[in-house]
Write a protein that binds this DNA or RNA. Structure first.
Lengths: 327, 327
DNA sequence: ACCACTCATGCAACCGGTTACATTGAAGCC
DNA sequence: GGCTTCAATGTAACCGGTTGCATGAGTGGT
């Protein structure tokens, strides 16, 4: 502590942290001036060690590679910047047994954790809370995390609207392109699944699922082609997310199916790129900025008041109708 | 220290850190067993405070919103994961005066900094090194950071190849779509600029620049349309990056110009999405995985040996010819 | 038997702050 | 004037580890 040029360290600490202990105005000014002169930066590690609070939160995303999550990282970081917190990033790495790998997270002392789309945490009996050793936790997204602060994106009504819209423009066979973790989705109460089933039921079609091994484009495209080759081509396609929809563009083009004339297409998430596809993709856009701001507000509040009752909010995505579903 | 059930804290520390002080085998086993039993996690803050090393690095990206940087974040994180380091993310925020805002970075005690594309740092007299208060530093990308470890992507030859390829397929007026920080680019020795100028000179065309206010799609598209309206349409377009190329797709479509028949298009960076556009975009793909691995290796080495001479590497991107430039 | 020396481990200072508690000096009250 | 009270600041313990140095128990040499 070079401040000893003037007074003792505890006084300095009190002044700079605005502790509510009375301090003479002259001393305050002197300390402030000296600190400014020498460009004093309190050592955050030391402070964190003493106070037990690091001014850092972790963002835990299901899949950092997708543009959708990149957007979430972006917005969340803007939010952190405003609140003078730092952001560590992590990726959800499911163990073989279906639990989440928290070892890396636990090792770094963050004050709290923000998570996006942790499907498995929403399965009863697998609360993320217990996995995280009681760290303040807020989650966001479609999958509701049991027993934790959560900002929910309620896709159901928009999916119903989207699929009925496909029917309205003349589609008579609307399939759902979806990763084949099918049982998970049912257990997770996936809104999209329910919305799709409700919608097709409303116009008397049986649900038709096109399953793909995962969400990667290199596997989705071939799976779709194979499906069409063996069972014929639906005239409407609702996709689990925009990434899969983008893969579908290419697969359909390779098969000489026109969008939207032969197949009308709708995606999910609202990735910016989809507006630049040819034709522009109809998609259900998530209110990411609001989602991030709300989740941060929840977490920040809980950091201050750990005993707070559960905080929950539900946000509505919006259907953006573009040319891929217009006839 | 709950370990006092057995021995004293210093011994525990020595055992778990494999210090080269002789320790009896029984003690070692006992300590290890107890530690395992109680799931002991050394408190990283405390360790960091004592050792002065946090096992954390910051990644500093020019623009987190773009899919290109999202990829970099992704690959870098994979690299960190392998090496048991944690990653903080930051974004380069240029001050009004052209320097970089390092305050957020300096505040959190990371061991070192990785940066991607810091154009201004490559301008003589603005070395990033001095800005970072001597923190170990490695940069990556097109813009070479003066006086710092650097992994360079050398675009020049590939850009020459790309632009000559446009000429070879019949383009006679190849323009360069580029953000209008034009003076910066010259000062930064931007390879793309030099490559473009060299290539058009090789077939006797004068360079033609289409300047845009920034790289955002919402501004690039209108700028391109306005340019074409006033000066006519080039038959070949080389784009500063893929994001701008994606914006160009839409603008050209709106103007009823076909790709590649009316305008042949080439982008830069190799964003995954570009393969799914219609037609798929010809692009110059950066070897991101290798870039990240090399930059990490440089930084890691410098953390161990601060006095090391400058480390530099140059990687070659690859021209991926796809339908957007084929006739 | 004694000394020198090595092996194994404990002690205590330190990293750079925060904070409960003690101390000091001056003002207020009877 | 002595005693209480409170404002202003210093002291020291603590956060949870790491590490230089000291100590004590064996061991071998003479």
């Amino acid at each position: 502590m070079a401040e000893r040029a003037e007074v003792s360290t505890s006084t300095v600490s009190r002044v700079l942290n605005n502790v509510d202990v009375p301090i003479s105005p002259e001393t305050q000014q002197r300390v402030r001036r000296i600190a400014a002169e020498m460009g004093y930066q309190p050592h955050r590690l030391a402070r964190a060690l003493a106070t037990g609070c690091t001014q850092t939160v972790a963002l835990w995303a299901a899949n950092l590679r997708s543009a959708h999550y990149a957007q979430v990282v972006y917005f969340m970081r803007q939010e952190m910047l405003r609140h003078e917190y730092d952001l560590m990033i992590s990726e959800a790495q499911p163990h073989g047994n279906g639990t989440l790998d928290t070892s890396r997270l636990r090792s770094w002392p963050v004050d709290g954790i923000l998570a996006v789309e942790l499907p498995r945490a929403s399965i009863p009996g697998m609360e993320a809370k217990s996995l995280l050793a009681g760290k303040p936790f807020a989650s966001m997204g479609v999958y509701v995390t049991q027993g934790a602060d959560h900002v929910r994106i309620d896709f159901r009504d928009r999916v119903v609207e989207a699929v009925q819209h496909l029917h309205a423009v003349g589609c008579r066979r609307v399939a759902y392109l979806v990763p084949d973790w099918f049982e998970w989705f049912r257990q997770c109460q996936d809104d999209r699944l329910h919305g799709y089933e409700e919608a097709v039921a409303s116009f008397g079609q049986a649900p038709e699922y096109i399953l793909t091994a995962d969400e990667k484009r290199v596997t989705v495209g071939p799976a779709l082609k194979a499906y069409i080759a063996s069972r014929g081509c639906p005239d409407g396609l609702f996709c689990f997310n925009d990434d899969m929809a983008i893969a579908a563009y290419r697969a359909l083009r390779d098969l000489d199916r026109r969008i939207p004339e032969d197949v009308a297409l709708i995606g999910c998430d609202g990735i910016e790129d989809t507006a630049y596809l040819d034709p522009p993709l109809t998609t259900i856009a998530q209110p990411l900025e609001e989602m991030c701001a709300t989740a941060w507000a929840f977490l920040e509040r809980r950091l201050r008041e750990p005993g707070l009752p559960l905080q929950e909010a539900t946000l509505q995505p919006t259907l953006q109708v573009r040319a891929s579903s217009q006839r």
